[in-house]
């Protein structure tokens, strides 16, 4: 494992985007950052700039207007990157799946690595989701390097 890989797996920076959530999952993501859960002690920082982020956390259903923003944010993130869908709405549309303005879950727009179920998922579940995404990201990176060698 190279130095950059170590740094990435020990200090992933996350980007959060609300694609159409009720706020419940968003405040649980913020709660992860605050003293009781305090993910910053693991080096996880919530960052506003997609160009600095490793993991994209998406909450809520994707609608026609937010799909473009979501796609833009994803495209701006440097590789390797991972996407975590948080909450029932981000998984499938949840209670809103039949609404006229809803395209469906996050996977209708982006490739999703980890699905965190719940309405709203507890902060512990969100943290576990991010950790799982890091594992997947690393696996992918190793496979890419093996392919190149």
């Amino acid at each position: 494992m190279g130095l950059i890989d170590i740094a990435r797996s020990k200090s992933p920076w996350i980007l959060h985007f609300d694609a159409g959530a009720c706020n419940g999952c968003d405040i649980e993501i913020l709660a992860c950052l605050t003293p009781v859960y305090d993910v910053e002690r693991f080096g996880i920082i919530n960052i506003g700039n997609p160009k600095h982020a490793d993991v994209l956390l998406v909450t809520g259903t994707v609608n026609k207007r937010s799909a473009r923003v979501l796609r833009n944010l994803y495209d701006q993130m440097p590789d390797p990157k991972a996407v975590v869908a948080i909450g029932a709405c981000a998984l499938s549309g949840g209670v809103f799946h039949e609404c006229y303005n809803v395209l469906g879950g996050v996977d209708s727009v982006l490739p999703v690595d980890v699905y965190v179920p719940g309405c709203a998922p507890k902060p512990e579940a969100i943290i576990e989701g991010v950790v799982m995404a890091l594992g997947k990201m690393q696996e992918r990176e190793h496979a890419r390097k093996r392919g190149a060698a």
Binding site: G20, A21, N63, R65, S66, F96, C99, N101, V102
Partner: peptide
Amino acid sequence: IGYVHRGVEKA
């Protein structure tokens, strides 16, 4: 606005 419109009233 319109980024989180879902259509709850219709649903």
